[in-house]
Structures are given as C-alpha cells and as structure tokens.
Design a protein around this nucleic acid. Structure first.
Lengths: 211, 211
DNA sequence: ACGAATTAGACGTTTTGCGTCTAACTAGAA
DNA sequence: TTCTAGTTAGACGCAAAACGTCTAATTCGT
C-alpha cells in the first residue's frame, strides 16, 4: 500500500508535491547527520509535516532514503543533459559531464562527513537506485564518446581500451577522488577536472592536450 | 565515586590527560550534532577510548557536558586575560575582550546549528558552569572599565548607568547578536565590534569616536 | 456537504542508549 | 616477579527513543 508511485502531486504548496518536499528534507538531514542519526520524526519536522504523513507516502525510512536518491538522480540527470547539450571541445564536455554527475552528487552530501555511511546504506538498501544512478552517467558518457568519435574528434582505440572499460575506469577514478582525507567540494571538482583532462588526452586524436 | 576532581593527569599521551581528551572530543560532537544526538558511545569513539573509561572519569553524560564547559571556560579565560594584557585605546581593548569571550564561545559551537539546544542544556544541567563562564567576563570587564576610568580615559558616569548595569547590558547585547538568522562566525565577530564601539562611545570622555 | 489529504496522538514492538559491573589486559614501580 | 592503577571488551537490566500501525478528528478544495 502507498507504493510511492507517481500517484498525484495534485496540489503542491509551492509547486512541489509532498513526496519531493519530504525527500528534499530527508536529503538535507541525511547529508548533515547521516542515516542512522536521522529519525523519521526529524524528517517530518524538517519537511513541516506530520509523522503520519510520511507513512502515507513511504513504506519506511529506507523507502524515504530510496526516494531521496531517486530525486537526486533526476536532478543529476537534468544537469548532465544540460552539460552534454553545451557545445565545446571534447575535454571540456567530458569535464562538464563529470562535474554535473559526480560533482552534484558529492556536493549534495558535502554538508557533513557521512559519505561513508551513506554509501554503505545505499549499497544495502538502495542497490537498484544506485545502479540507476550510475547508469545515467554510463549512458550519457557513451553518447559523448561515440559522438566525438563519429566526428573524428577523438579516437577511442587510441586509449587501448574498449569504451565500456574506459567509462568504467572514469567512474572508478571519480570514486577514488573521494578517498583519503575527504576533500572540500571545490577540491573534489578540481580533481574531477584533472581526471577529465587525463582521459581526454588518452583519446585525443592529435595527441596534443590543450589546457 | 570518580568525582572528576583534579585527581591526577599522571602521564598524558601527548601532554593532555584523559579528562581533557574526552572533554575536547565531546565538544566537537556536541557542536556538530547537539547534545541529544550525541551518545556516550560516540564520545568514546571520538576520544579514542573505551566507553567504560568515560565512567571512570565522569558520572554521566551531563558530567561530561559540564567538564566540556569548564574546559571551554578555562580557554576563554586565558584568551580574555591575553586580550586585557594588550595595551591600546579603550574601545579596542573592549572589542578584544568581547571577541575573546563571546567570540571564542560562539566559534566553539559554530560547527553546527545547535546553539539553541546547547544553551538550553547549559541552563538545565550546567547552571553553575554557565554562571562561572559569565563571571569571567564580568570580572575582567570590570577591571577594564575601572582601570580606564582611573586613568581618566573614560567616564562611566557619562553613560548614565552603574558599572554593573553597563556590563550586564553589554552581555545582553552580545547574546542578542546571535538571535534571528544565525550569523556566521565572522558576522558575529563583526557585530561584537559594533557593539563594542557603541559602548565605548557611551563612556568616551571627549565624546569623539574614532573608528 | 462531500471526499481526499492531513493531522495529533496513542499503541505495541524493536532498537538504542545509559549506567553498572566483571574479568582480563597493560604498563610502570617496588 | 608482584603489586597497583588505568584501561579495555563485553555483558547486564532498565529506561528512553524510534519504528511502524492505527484511529478519530480536522482541514481544504470542489
């Protein structure tokens, strides 16, 4: 019951329905305090809603978390498509795509130091959403590489890897940029740019890399 | 038992004893998450100590809180005395004293948005420590005003208030500077400077205020 | 007046946290 | 070695909190 389907969002106080409203409140709290330290009561209060209302729309705390991830995924997808729609050299577009995807996700959670816990929770209760989240990037990155290759701007073969592997490697590099001392949001975005320029150079047709 | 007295601090891993070590860990967590959201387990982990060790030195969570406040009070007192030891015009010294007292306390807790809860906890379980905390400022401010008045630099009577009342008013103004939208640490320090210049002008002997 | 959405609040259950306690471990001093 | 003080992991009972469910009352747009 109350399957959190695309039911209504009938009225909406200021344009957004209850579900978005609650998911956004949950995002703020999860980012700041982590999953365990955030109670349903906290979420209800932050969303300005009765606790019972949460259970009208969600099955439980894990369901709220999944909805929050899905909402974040939608936002990330929008930004990624905007980034891809912008013309420019391949290296720039790759950097923009990475910033839109990994950077948006990172900055959403950078209000606290709970990336580790949140990642663990994602894996354990939101595997599907996490996969969808990554699929967004894989799909759009493939479009970017394929398009640039078709126009002769880059040569994927030059990297010595298949496109699948190349993209998977990018994602692992972006994930790795969070390890060790947790970087600030700006530092993380800078590291993403550095990764992007390396990968762009690896497939550049002329071998010359413009900064 | 384990009266948290000035027992030993016998060895000390890097100069600070267990009690300071734990109190500082507690300060970090209380500032970031608030009192209720911080468990004894969290404090033990943050301090790198077993949970049982907490109860060797403190009676309970409230006792840890009080010790943390006392430690903060000691730090504030040090900074206040340093500020008072520095020569300069009265207005500057008052501003420095206020920054040392209220600013230090504020910045210690500015890592989160839990000033309200922490203040309430202070009142309910640490009234004595809170009073001592304020007494530090009252005492030193009195020294500052009396000294400047004795040297003819200021005229307390000019303000139309007794010194006690004047100082109490300063403290209320400093407290009020936190109300409404919680300011950033820099903004709060700026507001303190503004308050200091007003009060300095109120007792200035020549009536001219230098910025 | 009707119905859909929301609300406060109570409920039983599960989980978490508190404070206590014990037995074992470590390290320095005698 | 032995003694002692400090620490530790872990278990315990109890209290508080959080979870998820439910109901009766309320709001609000139509």
């Amino acid at each position: 019951m109350s399957d959190r389907s695309e039911s209504s969002i009938t009225s909406g106080e200021d344009g957004k329905g209850r579900i978005e409203q609650i998911a956004e409140a949950a995002l703020r709290l999860f980012a700041r305090y982590g999953y365990k330290r955030t109670s349903m009561d906290d979420i209800a209060r932050e969303a300005g809603v009765a606790r019972a209302t949460l259970y009208l729309h969600f099955k439980g705390k894990d369901d709220v978390f999944r909805a929050m991830l899905a909402g974040l995924g939608a936002q990330v997808e929008t930004r990624c498509r905007e980034a891809l729609a912008t013309p420019g050299p391949f290296a720039e577009r790759l950097a923009a795509l990475m910033a839109a995807h990994h950077g948006t996700a990172f900055s959403a959670f950078s209000a606290g130091e709970h990336l580790g816990e949140l990642k663990a929770v994602m894996i354990s209760i939101a595997g599907a959403e996490l996969a969808a989240f990554e699929a967004i990037f894989i799909d759009l990155a493939r479009q970017l590489f394929d398009g640039a290759a078709a126009q002769g701007e880059i040569s994927i073969e030059r990297s010595g890897l298949r496109l699948d592997t190349l993209i998977a490697t990018i994602m692992r590099a972006a994930a790795g940029a969070k390890y060790g001392e947790l970087p600030s949001c700006e530092d993380y975005l800078l590291r993403l740019r550095e990764i992007a320029s390396v990968f762009a150079a690896a497939v550049s047709r002329d071998g010359a890399l413009r900064a």
